[in-house]
Design a protein around this nucleic acid. Structure first.
Length: 362
DNA sequence: AAGGCGGGGGA
DNA sequence: TCCCCAGCCTT
């Protein structure tokens, strides 16, 4: 038996080794220059299921627009969603606003400063609570994110499916033991995530230069590419959207999406969803008042087709631009409102809609 | 316990 | 294509 592969030994040395590695390899990121819990929280929410490269410019814009939690609390949700546009998972933005207002109004602007209190906030789960508690307040509580699952699964050779509840408990318990050995909890949490992002990457990890090579069960058994184990995701759903883009005097008719569906609280056009793709206006079965509107309006001859790939849905969208004369305006379906192009620009919209607007009117 | 929720980037 | 990304919420 190789003593170096003993899990107890690995548990003892892991935290200090990662902290030492981090000291030499950490990236210079804007949220690492502050201990303001508001800014750390903001960065963590932005980075939920989001790569650093994608989130960084958003963080800069949010800090500039809302330097303090009180500034964010004062903002209207629509402006916040507009600033969030393109980041996805828009409930994060709505929860961000809700928590900013709660902290401002019920906590006298002072951010909750313990893991347990942070966990009560909207949009703050186990990961984000641990991140803010450790980074801003030095609390010794371990983060468990995608990086941590990968690093620990490989180092310790854990082949449990990380989507299961029992596996989550296994990893959380292990992470809790590991952070007890850390010199500094904040540094260790940053270190293990940074290590996963830079060194122990999902594909082609840099094992040859890895300081943990001798301790890593995955490396010793050649299972780097098989760990962590994760159940396959369900297949994506195909959806077909036919949009009617009503125009009048340079204004466009948009509506807010309020259904329990994708893009909640974002704006798009009159939408008819179909089970199969319908590429022409003529073949689209429209409800009575709308079909009359289309008959009497002047529709452009061409159709703009755009696709949008989400992680769980594949959307093919067909856009029909229809000019309405003034006499038909009062027949506009309820929910739709007229916006000038400047106003349209200020509305929060899905990337699909932004792409259409850029192509048709940009 | 399972499913929904964005969008982008890398292989 | 497929997978993953500093996850969280609802049912």
């Amino acid at each position: 038996m190789n003593w170096q592969s003993d899990a107890n030994v690995t548990e003892t040395i892991l935290a200090p080794v990662l902290e030492g590695w981090y000291d030499h390899h950490k990236r210079d990121l804007p949220w690492r220059h502050t201990r303001d819990p508001y800014r750390i929280w903001l960065s963590e929410v932005i980075l939920q299921q989001t790569r650093v490269a994608q989130g960084k410019p958003y963080y800069e814009r949010f800090v500039a627009a809302y330097p303090t939690v009180a500034d964010m609390a004062r903002a209207d949700e629509q402006s916040l969603l507009r600033l969030w546009q393109g980041l996805g998972y828009y409930s994060r933005a709505r929860n961000l606003h809700q928590t900013a207002r709660y902290v401002t109004e019920h906590c006298a602007g002072k951010f909750p400063d313990t893991y347990q209190e942070l966990l009560k906030m909207k949009g703050i789960g186990a990961y984000t609570a641990a991140a803010v508690a450790s980074f801003a307040f030095g609390e010794r509580v371990a983060v468990v994110d995608g990086n941590v699952y990968r690093v620990l699964a490989r180092i310790f050779g854990i082949d449990q499916d990380i989507t299961t509840t029992t596996a989550k408990k296994t990893f959380a318990a292990l992470a809790a033991r590991l952070i007890e050995r850390a010199n500094d909890p904040a540094t260790y949490n940053q270190a293990v995530m940074e290590f996963g992002a830079i060194q122990c990457t999902p594909v082609s990890p840099d094992c040859l230069l890895c300081p943990l090579q001798q301790y890593c069960v995955a490396y010793q058994t050649g299972r780097q590419s098989r760990l962590p184990v994760k159940a396959k995701k369900s297949p994506v759903r195909d959806r077909y959207y036919s949009y009617l883009v009503f125009r009048n005097n340079g204004r466009l008719a948009l509506r807010e999406r309020t259904a329990r569906d994708i893009w909640q609280n974002l704006f798009d056009f009159y939408l008819q969803e179909t089970d199969e793709p319908v590429t022409t206006l003529r073949d689209l079965a429209l409800p009575d008042p709308v079909s009359g509107l289309v008959q009497q309006g002047v529709s452009t001859a061409y159709v703009v087709e755009l696709s949008q790939l989400l992680s769980h849905q594949r959307i093919r969208a067909f856009f029909h631009l229809i000019d309405l004369p003034d006499r038909l305006l009062e027949q506009l379906p309820t929910g739709l409102n007229w916006y000038t192009m400047d106003q349209v620009n200020e509305l929060p919209k899905p990337v699909l809609i932004s792409n259409y607007l850029a192509r048709e009117f940009g």
